[in-house]
Design a protein around this nucleic acid. Structure first.
Lengths: 331, 331
DNA sequence: TATAAAAATAACAACGTTGTTAATTTGGAG
DNA sequence: CTCCAAATTAACAACGTTGTTATTTTTATA
């Protein structure tokens, strides 16, 4: 492996000059700098990270704890996060274990910060762990932890969806996204749906909130079939997430119906893929890029000043596309 | 952060003695060793990884490149791998980007080895990348790359399944697991099925290989419905993977049928979860633990001697459970 | 042309380890 | 008790950087 000393020798200067040149210090003459840079490039120099970490007293790594790998929507968020953090000079270490043991590992590895994607039932474990000084940021656990948090205003997202549909004249709206398992993140959305439909003066006869098993494609498919087979079919549906939405689309298509002609659909989640579905999808949620920016910013801030505990609430937006239309245009 | 010098001071010895004591060197007296150890524990000492890496000239990190995060079966493999490598003193860095850019990042980070879970179409990219000396291990790409490989004999797995069913008297067997996309890993299994059924002298009238969209739960569900609705229902089914299997189970159950009474099912994949399905599942494949061991072993070997290129083929096993039974016991 | 100031470069210490070599203490034999 | 070898511990160099301080070279001024 080539070091700055090797470069120094080839360039006929001292290694400290090489160091400065590589970091583009003003303390070295432009000409020498160019010379050194070209040699470094020629020799395919890679700075030694261990050495750099040693003097900077940082690991240049950020740990991400992700207890449940199944949550597909998060995977694209994590991908983006890694990319962004990499641009900032950090490598991410992803641990899929449970929170406690992951933190212990990250502690041993002396990461500069830890990002936790907490799952529903792990709130208890937040409390007593980590007396140490590694900054911790949690996602989706606002109010549950003593650490900094970035969270999405999920209730507001569903309210936006309801208002959008009501504004289009819909009076019979169903909500697909109530899983069997206890999941506070879903509960928030369901409550918001219930509350907002009442506020808007909607009175639906059938229970508009469909009970289902999980939150996967197939659950959406089954739930979609359920509402399509009702005697009075709702004119619009709000879906709790992209996987459910895909299932709903399949069910609708199998019934020989079309969106938005026969039914309007709004989906929670704000992902680029939402435009690539069978029909471009109206969606509510916080864009991945927004989340990424917020998380990265908060983490970097936290690394700079570990005591700056803060809670960031991200406001969702409504993106209107072809999957929703006026109620009176329905057949 | 507490260093060996801090410990040395408290213990009244030199820091080099502390270093030796902590590494359990025979060069330091038992009594002093105990003393130092207790102080280290008391001060909650964590060795500085950067310093250690610097002198050992290793990063203690292994990069895993995982182009497509969607392949659920792999996720538990990766989880296990991380655990195992962690026990061996390595941290894993998971990159979900494409192969080229991932390798570039890992190169900058100077990982000690790279493990690539290649996806179907990325074979081309294997060729010209990486002139460097970081050892590379690929998974599932035997014959496609110039690197060491650990691979599963998928064809053999399917043959085992076919033979098992034939041994039970089944003569009409379907295969669920032919996706639309070109996927060599699936093709191998399909060809093996075709070949082995012919060898066994089976003559099925309907095409026993069900064409489907993807390889998810829902695809299995739909494929399951397809074969159940045939005029002559096959007496047994081989499923191409756990997600498909779950979908098939759902379809069977919705038809009011039971396994293995009305139909035997063998599933590809050898995962613990296979026992926790609605009915304990007969399965063929290489156990995650076997794969993990093979991969970890090969990687460590490769780190020790980067020139020891080798290809490891893992032989699948058949695990018989309640989901398969004699053909003549069928209704 | 001597000389101070400014610019450029070189030398050095430090980061926290490990491994090697040097120094000290201990124990045993004469 | 002395002295030598063995056992134990201490000191030191090295790993590849960065940042600070010292030295050299250049430039501008008198």
């Amino acid at each position: 492996m080539v070091t700055i000393k090797d470069i120094a020798e080839r360039a006929g200067v001292s290694f400290s000059t090489v160091s400065k040149a590589l970091r583009d210090s003003p303390l070295v003459q432009h000409k020498t700098k160019q010379h050194i840079l070209s040699i470094a490039k020629d020799m395919d120099y890679q700075p030694n990270i261990a050495a750099r970490n040693l003097v900077s007293k940082k690991s240049g790594a950020i740990g991400i704890v992700w207890p449940s790998i199944e949550r597909v929507a998060l995977s694209s968020l994590i991908t983006k996060l890694s990319e962004e953090l990499e641009k900032q000079g950090y490598i991410t270490i992803l641990l899929i274990n449970n929170i406690e043991s992951s933190i212990e590992t990250l502690r041993r590895y002396q990461v500069d910060a830890i990002l936790i994607f907490g799952d529903r039932d792990s709130n208890a474990s937040y409390n007593n762990l980590n007396q140490m000084k590694i900054p911790i940021l949690t996602y989706g656990a606002a109010g549950y932890t003593p650490y900094s948090t970035v969270d999405v205003n999920r209730g507001q997202a569903i309210r936006l969806a309801v208002r959008h549909l009501v504004g289009l004249g819909h009076r019979d709206i169903a909500y697909i996204g109530k899983p069997q398992s206890h999941d506070p993140l879903q509960t928030v959305k369901i409550e918001a749906f219930r509350d907002e439909t009442i506020r808007q003066g909607l009175h639906m006869q059938d229970d508009p909130i469909i009970q289902m098993k999980g939150l996967e494609f197939h659950d959406g498919y089954i739930a979609g079939r359920t509402i399509l087979e009702r005697s009075t079919r709702p004119t619009a549906v709000i879906s709790g997430g992209i996987d459910l939405t895909r299932g709903i689309l399949r069910a609708v298509s199998e019934h020989g119906l079309t969106i938005p002609h026969d039914m309007s659909v709004v989906s929670y989640d704000n992902l680029p893929q939402m435009e690539d579905l069978e029909i471009p999808m109206t969606m509510v949620g916080v864009a991945i890029s927004t989340m990424t920016t917020a998380i990265v910013e908060t983490i970097l801030e936290l690394i700079k000043d570990p005591n700056s505990i803060r809670t960031v609430h991200l406001e969702p937006e409504l993106v209107v596309r072809a999957s929703t239309t006026y109620e009176n245009s329905l057949s």
